[in-house]
Amino acid sequence: MDFFESIAQSFTKTFITDDRWLQLLSGLGVTVLITLVAAAIGIVLGFLIAMVRSTYDMQLQGRKCMKPSDYVLKVLNFICNFYITVIRGTPVVIQLMIMYFIVFASSREGIVAAFLSFGMNSAAYVAEIVRSGIMSIDKGQFEASRSIGFNYRDTMLYIIIPQAFKNILPALGNEFIVLVKETSVAGYVALQDLTYVGNMIRSRTYEAFFPLITVALIYLIIVLILSFLLKKLERRLRNSDH
């Protein structure tokens, strides 16, 4: 058997036999689904955590609690800090397995466990990105808005967040690029994501090259597409920059 023939055979085994290209496609679908849902959870939850943390930083840090709401804020801030420390201090694959084997022990809902653990993981990083974006806005903006008579919430909404958004967009985009790749451990909880399917094809066919390189290329393409979209969005925002 000559060289080209063996390549053709490997290719066929990897993609054609048993409709394996369809399996890869469905694996890609699982990866994209987990990423999208986790990103949505990450943005919403991360944003809420960032609000608590930056409200605390701006209004209470280094001061005494005066009103009942101050104590609530203090407790919330403590919880958020704890959350961020734990999430950032442990591997995401361990978080995923805890979610699946302990929290979802009875139902074994792998996909829900993945949504939640990747989402909650992402939230911790998003929170810190958003918070640093908010804190990077000149204090004078905040003071000008408050001096007009806007309350804290309106000041955030109309003045601070719109300006912070531009600053944090690159870091936020980067977080989602990282997220896509992190979902590759979903196989640990019996999910057939892109990585899992690639590895399964490798073990069935005893062909390592085509399945693994294909999977790598697909991740790379997703990341390149995301980067491209992000650049475009950034450029559009910069053009309206004043």
């Binding site: 005066m66 004078g140 001096s147 007009i148 008579g149 003045i159 719109p162 004043h242």
Partner: peptide, 25 residues
């Protein structure tokens, strides 16, 4: 006094800063 809503009163007190602090966006 903590029980008043300061935002209402601030509406009646304009402030101008050294660094202008216009909203750049």
């Amino acid at each position: 006094d903590f029980s008043i809503d300061i935002n209402i009163h601030r509406q009646k007190m304009g402030m101008v800063f050294q660094q202008f602090n216009l909203f750049p966006h």
